[in-house]
């Protein structure tokens, strides 16, 4: 297991390197002076000079690249133009809200998606299967942020059951359990919205994997032993299919994190997604590239974790 972890890390580091490299070259590919891009609109000549010095823009390209790498490796993504604070501290401050949102929706998607996928597989070819498959096609075809907008219109604007925006109620300070409840109420709509895409992907792939598993010889052998249908389904078939489920979660994590950007805008959720949005609209490129590298590292890490979980679940992957 330790060996596998090391090997996976050895595969992840070049990926992180690739992301940082990509970002470095993008900033240089962008039309105009990189210093101007990093300094924001209409900078003073002194500030431009300062930026040049900070990023070593007067140095040869390879030195700039080295400097950039070193900075990125130490979590130094520069200073936000608009906020005038270190990019990393801005990201770090907003990250927990995104973590809460992401985890809530991933838990929801995993439980419901798995249940629907298993249910569809058990009734493969029947009407229930058709309904679930059709629903899952809708789920990954309809843009999540639009579903979010509709939910806001319905549940917040029209019915006024749930808050439309934010993570906590404004102008009221709850503490303890009341605070948790308050956040929970604000969390429901964005978490559901964000969960839909992942949920349908999980349902779709779990269904296929379960159908495949249920057709394997070992299911027949276990049946011949006298194993009950329920145990066949969960202990034998699902124990095989769950590897696919976990792989899907790992592979789609990037899509989920990208999804938080739009979902956070729709629901005014104060997380990393808002950082992206603000950075885009204020042309705050140090903040944007920093948030991008940070998110990519999170995605790569999540993928590594999902690979390790798969290995723990399937002895054939372990080596």
């Amino acid at each position: 297991m330790l060996k596998l972890l090391l090997r996976r890390l050895a595969m992840s580091l070049p990926l992180v390197f690739a992301v940082v490299t990509l970002t470095f070259f993008l900033v240089r590919l962008a039309p105009g002076d990189p210093a101007a891009i990093l300094a924001g609109e209409a900078p003073s000549p002194e500030f431009l000079a300062e930026i040049r010095a900070e990023y070593g823009l007067d140095q040869p390209q390879w030195r700039q690249f080295l400097a950039y790498l070193t900075k990125a490796a130490t979590g130094d993504f520069g200073t936000s133009i608009y906020l005038g604070r270190p990019v990393f501290s801005v990201i770090w401050e907003r990250f927990p809200a995104t973590v809460v949102l992401t985890i809530a929706s991933m838990v929801l998607a995993s439980i419901l998606g798995t249940a629907l996928g298993v249910l569809a597989a058990r009734h493969a070819g029947n009407r229930l299967d058709t309904v679930i498959s059709a629903g899952s096609l809708l789920g990954y075809s309809i843009p999540g942020f639009w579903i979010g907008q509709l939910l806001v219109i319905l549940f917040a604007v029209e019915l006024d059951w749930l808050p439309a925006s934010g993570m906590t109620t404004a102008r009221v300070t709850y503490t303890g359990f009341a605070h948790v409840l308050d956040v929970g109420r604000h969390l429901i709509l964005p978490a559901v919205t964000l969960a839909i895409f992942l949920l349908t992907m999980i349902a779709r792939f779990t269904r296929t994997a379960m159908i495949e598993a249920l057709n394997q010889d070992f299911i027949l052998v276990a049946t011949a032993k006298g194993v009950s249908p329920r145990r066949l389904l969960w202990h034998h078939a699902f124990r095989n299919a769950v590897v696919t489920t976990v792989t899907v979660i790992g592979l789609e994590f990037g899509a989920v994190l990208s999804g938080t950007v739009v979902v956070e805008i729709v629901f005014g959720w104060p997380g990393l997604g808002r950082v992206f949005y603000d950075a885009i609209n204020r042309r705050d490129f140090p903040l944007l590239t920093g948030a991008f590298i940070f998110s990519s590292v999170v995605v790569i890490a999540a993928n590594t974790v999902s690979d390790l979980v798969c290995a723990a679940l399937d002895p054939r992957i372990r080596r």
Binding site: Q216, D217, V221, A222, G226, H236, P315, R316
Partner: peptide, 21 residues
Amino acid sequence: LRGTGIAMVFQDPMTSFNPVL
């Protein structure tokens, strides 16, 4: 009855065991 009265052994030992258990 399965396994106690009548038990079965199948053709392909490669696929007869659940690979993850």
